[in-house]
Amino acid sequence: MTATRTIVFSPDQLAEVRRLQGLYPDKRGALLPVLHMAQDAFDYVSLEVQEYVAGLFDMAPSHVHEVVTFYTLYFQQPKGRHVVAVCHNLSCYLAGSREILAHVKQRLGIGVGETTDDGRVTLQSVECLCACEAAPMMQVDDRYELNLTPEKVDRILGELR
């Protein structure tokens, strides 16, 4: 997490923005992938990043803000090095996700939407991630962790650095 960083894409990243914009009949179609690029490049999509991206699309910042607030995978605050997203939807709930989430909170010492003091993990509670057959489950960064038990959660969290 850099405290201050100039919000500008590199020439390579700008070329990628232009390539993505060229893929759609209206360049606004590339807004989602470009926001992901921005999140990767600048850690999170701050208001400043949203205004920068709006400029790349000739859009009003308010309309980029609409998109950022609509989706849960864009972070408007600094996030941890890892993101743990526990499913709280029906199948997982019936299979004990409430206990799993409580356990995760207790192990990390944080609530939903919070980040550990060491900047290691951000915790989320999310809707269905389409793995009901292996409920309860959670997503850790880009990885699905299935058929969770408290012991399995301890092992997974223990491996996050």
Partner: peptide, 9 residues
């Protein structure tokens, strides 16, 4: 001027 938007969902 595009000031307004619909946020969240």
């Amino acid at each position: 001027t595009g000031e307004l938007g619909i946020f969240h969902r």
